[in-house]
């Protein structure tokens, strides 16, 4: 299997002087479900956002799907971004727009400026958006405003929005951190399904080891901007867990 993501010596130093990433080297193979572990502030979010340049990395190389992300500008950067779906902890939907419009906004990288100015989406795109809503089981909520949906439903709309992009990769930044355990599992199940059926590579940061074991094919752990573990979920024993989360940490089981 070929590499879809290749990071070389990636650094990010914030304006205030925080050194969030200290030379990350990472290769991700196509079709992997990679779980990012690590404490809050360990650099998980920074890493995910550097990879599609929502945050500008300070130095290093990023290659996604054989495209050099670092040197990309303007139109080329947007072309790279439109193949990378992104899912956020706070769902980041437009709360007073309908679920359908939110899903359609995933297509913005493809449509002309004129079509987006007039909010007139192609009929074909609407059909695709509806089928994507159906995939996450929300077709009956298409006309509902996002703010009237529950947290789990909002996250599923966000997944449908990412699907709209025809993504090769999905970055999920703590997608279940604001959801209850049962809903969290269902959201992860949808992600797992995309990974298996559509062969979408997924990088997902998490805090729950149980979910990591259930859905992940590989686990990478960050600590203070460095990779401290890289292996299969099964390899994480108690000692490894304490290496990642510190000596005082106890694994919390959610079931």
């Amino acid at each position: 299997m070929k590499n879809i993501i290749k990071l070389t010596d990636l650094h990010k130093i914030y304006e205030g002087g925080t050194h969030a990433l200290k030379g990350v080297n990472l290769e991700v193979k196509e079709g992997e479900f990679l779980i990012l572990l690590g404490l809050s502030g360990s650099g998980k979010s920074t890493l995910l956002r550097c990879m599609n340049r929502l945050i500008e990395p300070t130095s290093g190389e990023i290659e996604i799907d054989e495209e050099n992300v670092i040197t990309a500008k303007g139109k080329r950067l947007r072309k790279i971004r439109r193949h990378i779906g992104m899912i956020f902890q706070q769902f980041n939907l437009l709360k007073n727009l309908s679920a359908l419009t939110n899903v359609l906004s995933g297509k913005l990288g493809y449509v002309s400026l004129w079509h987006s100015v007039t909010f007139s989406m192609h009929k074909n795109d609407v059909a695709i958006a509806m089928s994507n809503l159906q995939r996450v089981g929300l077709e009956q909520f298409a006309k509902n405003k996002a703010r009237n949906l529950s947290g789990g439903q909002q996250q599923r709309v966000a997944i449908a929005r990412a699907l709209m992009q025809n993504p090769r990769v999905i970055f999920a930044d703590e997608p279940v951190a604001s959801l209850d355990p049962a809903t969290a599992d269902s959201v992860m199940r949808y992600l797992g399904e995309l990974n298996k059926n559509d062969n979408i590579t997924i990088l997902c940061s998490l805090h729950f080891l149980s979910l990591a074991r259930k859905y992940g094919t590989r686990v990478v752990a960050l600590k203070d901007g460095n990779i401290v573990f890289d292996g299969t979920p099964k390899e994480i024993d108690e000692q490894k867990f304490k290496d990642i989360y510190g000596e005082d940490a106890e694994e919390v089981e959610i079931r």
């Binding site: 193949h83 706070q90 980041n92 297509k107």
Partner: peptide, 27 residues
Amino acid sequence: GPVEAIKATGASTLQTWIYAVIPQIVS
């Protein structure tokens, strides 16, 4: 948040303003 999300889909700056900023400020 939505601004970041729309930007991440590959939308241009103007598209981001239209889809992520304007819906939040209309009312």
